[in-house]
């Protein structure tokens, strides 16, 4: 493969994440079917075998680039300081918090908090009033559709319990 000398060296560290995950997962998968009937094994050994093979080819290729100095083990394509500046890391953290705390705080409240905090992070604190209003409107719409109308089994929290009591008595 002809390399373009004007380009900065390829960031192979980032590109290796997926193949390494793939190899790890495949080996784990094989360990779970080692003593299983043939029906559990046949197609996964085939698919997993090919996956290991293509990953191996990629590792060899990556090794050659490294030796030739055409690539580095950098992860610049995956993570940069820019990710903090743009609020991407912040968004990731709020997203994780969303799924973690929705069980305790309930669907509506947590959705509101998630939307408001994420938007504030991305907007760097500007338009706080507007953001609060939009988030509240979205969360209430979500409540109306998923909890009130369709009665799905979303986690109920303080807001849902209160509203239920209000609706039942009102």
């Amino acid at each position: 493969m002809p390399s373009d000398h004007h380009k900065p060296p390829r960031q192979i560290g980032g590109e290796l994440v997926i193949p390494i995950l793939a190899v790890g997962f495949t080996i784990y998968f094989f360990s779970t079917i080692w003593n299983s009937p043939w029906t559990a094994q046949v197609s996964t050994f085939m698919v997993g075998g090919i996956l290991l093979l293509v990953c191996a080819i990629f590792f060899v290729r990556a090794g050659i680039w490294l030796v030739r100095g055409e690539g580095t083990l950098g992860v610049g394509n995956l993570f940069t300081m820019d990710d903090i500046r743009t609020g991407r890391i912040g968004l990731l953290l709020t997203t994780i918090a969303y799924v973690m705390f929705i069980d305790t705080l309930g669907f509506t409240l947590m959705t509101f908090l998630f939307l408001a905090v994420s938007m504030l992070i991305l907007a760097k604190g500007k338009n706080a009033g507007f953001i609060t209003m939009v988030s509240a409107a979205m969360a209430l719409t979500g409540w109306a559709v998923f909890i009130w109308a369709f009665d799905t089994r979303f986690p109920r929290g303080w807001f849902e319990t209160t509203m239920k009591a209000v609706l039942a008595n009102g």
């Binding site: 784990y28 998968f29 779970t32 079917i33 299983s36 009937p37 559990a40 996964t44």
Partner: peptide
């Protein structure tokens, strides 16, 4: 599909 052995 056949013997319902859990995998991965």
């Amino acid at each position: 599909v056949v013997y319902a052995t859990p995998r991965g």
